[in-house]
Every structure is written in C-alpha cells, then in structure tokens.
Amino acid sequence: MRREQQAPDHRKNIRTLITIMYWLGAESAVSEPDVHDLAQLDPNLAAKPVCQFLRARGLLVDDPDLHRDADLTAIEAALATLPQPAASEVRARVDVLRSQGRREGEFRGWDGIRRYLDYLQPVLTVWAATGVTTLREITQQQVEDAVKNLSGHARRQLAIVLRSLFRSLKGQRVIFCDPAQNLPVGALKGVSQSVPSDLLAGLLDHAATPLGRLTVALAAVLAVPGSDIRTILTADVDLARGTLEIRRGLLRHTLYLEEFTHRQAAEWLTFRHRRWPASTNPHLLVSQKTALDPDRPAVSTATLRGVLPKGVTLDGLRQDRILNKAFESADPLKLMRLFGITERAAMRYVSAAHPERTARLPR
C-alpha cells in the first residue's frame, strides 16, 4: 500500500500510522481518541482515514462521543447558551423541523437546522442579554429592531427565519401572538431576478467534468434544489424509465428526465463506475474524497459550487428555470406538479411572471 499510495494525503496517513505503531505497538487495539489527539499536534498527520483503516482490521477501540453528528453537537451547544424557557421554545421549533412536532411538517437535516440557528443565534443572544427569558415576551417592535440595521440577503434570510420561528411556535401553541406576522421580508418580493443569459450560455463550457454538467442539468433544467442534489441516491435514478425520484422526508417527487439530462446522467454513471469501481457510496454524486470513504458521506456543497462560474448559484439556476416556466404558463398547478413546489411558492412565481393577472383591482 505504501508503494502504491504516494499522494500527499496518503503520505499523511502513513506517517500517522507509523507514529502510532512506533509508540503503542501493533499487538493491541488503538484507542480512537489517541489517534485524533496525535493528529492535532501536526498538520502533516491525519486522523479519520487512519481510524477507518484500523477499524476495518479490528485494531481500533471506537469512542461513541467522536461519532456524534457535528451539526447536532453545535445545535445543542447553541441551545445551551439560551435561558429557560426560551431554549425549550426554540427546541420545539427544532422538533418541528425534524417532523417531531404536534403536526407532521417538513423534515430537515441537522445541517439545515444548524444554518437556520446560525441566523437566529445572534438575535436570541441580544434578546437574552436584555432580560428576555421567553419568546412570549417578544414584541413586534423588537422583531423589527432585529432586522432594522440589516440589508440585502442578510436581512431577507433573518426575516424569513423569524417569521417561520414565530409562526411555527404559534401553530404548536407555544406562544399566543405572532410578533413577526407582518414583518416584511425585504426588497426581494417572492423570487430572485433571472440569471443573465450570457452566464447561462457559458455554464456547460465552464462545467468541464461529468459531475459539473450533471449538476448544471439538475439545477438549470429540472430545478432541483442544491440540498436535494447532494442527497440524491444512485438508486433514485432509473435511466430505463427516464425518471428521477427526489426524497423529501416522507414525501417523494418523481421528475422525468428529458434528453439532455438523461444523457448527462448516463455519462456521469459511466464515468463514476470507471473511476471508482469499488465505491459503495449510495449517493449519486461523489467526489475524490467521498467516493471511497467508508462513512459514505454526501458530496460537499463547496464541490457543487465549484462547478459554477462566479456570480451563479444553484438556487439562482433553479429559480430562473421555474420563473421561465411561469412565463410560459400562468397555471400554478402545473408548476406544483412539474417542480414539486408548494402552492404558495407557485403563486409567487406566477405573480412575478404575470403581475397583470394577479394584481388587486382598485376599490
């Protein structure tokens, strides 16, 4: 293995393994925390691949605390900084996002909930510093003050988070009044602007790899959200029938592959099989790091962003595709069936594409 694996990452693994075996010997199992502690001493040492190597050979004593979800750990740490009962109220919102509330809701992963709390945490900290112990005490003025000094994307995201938080807590009967009910989202009314045509024209030229071309096709043609692109499984793609199944919690949405996306999916699967024939990762999209990782993780968001030119995002491509379809058809039901979006989202796209049809008549 040492002769065959001379890449920098493999040299780090070998150096770590040699150090451990020199000091601890190879006659007994190695404690997993010892490997991680050693790797923290030098950037030229590695922990995770060495632990996987030792675990596969029965030479590692696992530590359950090291295998806890990092996003879950961060969420619990953030909630621990809040006073009671505010912490319990925010946890009720987290339970709803995990579909554990009083009513069945949208299932969201721990990574999405962590991003949700990243926007919310500074506001909750400020409120706690002013003596607020429960979200029932929050007034409409306090909510408006929280977004007053923000602008652009930051203001819009925080406004969306605050509105969803208080709306959910009211639906769960945790609070009585919704102070964020009339909070304006911001300058963006409904949907983003269209992606410039010159950027769209150069997408495939910029995406020089099969992974990049399939990612562009999924976002720009099928309008699949970036979070869903990462979690698509290989078993969800049926080239014979020309279908792609998107998993959203307990829900399933079937997309039909047109010729271009079908060809990109076939080319990617062929490339993946030839490049990593021994990969057991169930995800459709894999990278050099995730293809052979025994933990079988999803590809990172940064990898997907890297296939796009500057100024283009996956969400922007998706919104542009839905908006163009809304220009062709003012039927929100068609948008809902085609892209699997909600009724409210479909109406926003129709309103943006055909304001003359949805404008309120003067009294």
Rank of each mutant, 00 (worst) to 15 (best):
M1H: 10
M1S: 12
M1E: 08
E4M: 08
D9F: 04
N13E: 14
R15G: 04
L17W: 10
S28F: 07
S28V: 05
S31F: 05
S31K: 12
E32N: 10
E32Q: 15
P33L: 12
V35T: 13
V35N: 12
D37W: 06
A39R: 09
Q40F: 02
L41D: 08
L41E: 13
A46G: 05
A47C: 13
R55P: 00
G58D: 05
L59P: 03
L59S: 08
L59Y: 09
L60G: 09
P64M: 14
L66N: 12
A70Y: 05
D71E: 12
D71Q: 09
T73L: 09
A74Q: 14
E76H: 11
T81N: 05
L82H: 04
P83A: 12
A86G: 06
A87F: 09
S88I: 00
E89S: 08
E89H: 08
E89W: 04
V94F: 07
D95C: 13
D95T: 03
V96S: 06
Q100F: 05
Q100H: 09
G101M: 02
R102F: 08
E104A: 15
W110F: 12
G112F: 01
L120R: 11
P122Q: 07
V123T: 13
L124P: 00
T125P: 00
A128E: 08
T130H: 05
T134W: 08
I138F: 06
E144V: 07
N149L: 11
S151W: 06
S151Q: 12
H153W: 10
A154F: 04
R155Q: 14
L165T: 04
L165S: 02
F166T: 12
V174T: 09
I175L: 11
F176K: 13
D178Y: 10
Q181N: 06
N182Q: 11
L183A: 05
V185D: 01
V185R: 04
G186Q: 04
L188Y: 08
G190P: 02
D198S: 13
G202P: 05
D205I: 05
D205R: 09
A207H: 07
A207E: 09
T209A: 07
L211E: 01
L214C: 06
T215F: 01
A217T: 04
L218R: 09
L218E: 09
A219Q: 09
V221S: 13
L222K: 13
L222F: 11
V224N: 01
L233P: 00
L233I: 00
D236F: 05
G242P: 10
R247T: 10
G249M: 10
L251Y: 09
Y256D: 15
E259S: 15
F260D: 06
Q264P: 12
A265H: 03
A266W: 04
W268G: 02
W276D: 06
P277F: 00
P277H: 03
V286C: 07
T290D: 10
T290P: 12
D293S: 13
D295K: 07
R296P: 00
A302N: 10
L304K: 03
L304E: 01
R305Y: 02
L308E: 02
T313Y: 03
L317W: 07
L317S: 11
R318K: 13
Q319P: 04
R321M: 07
K325D: 13
A326W: 01
E328T: 03
D331I: 02
R344Q: 14
M347I: 08
R348M: 09
Y349P: 01
V350K: 00
V350P: 01
E356H: 15
L361I: 05
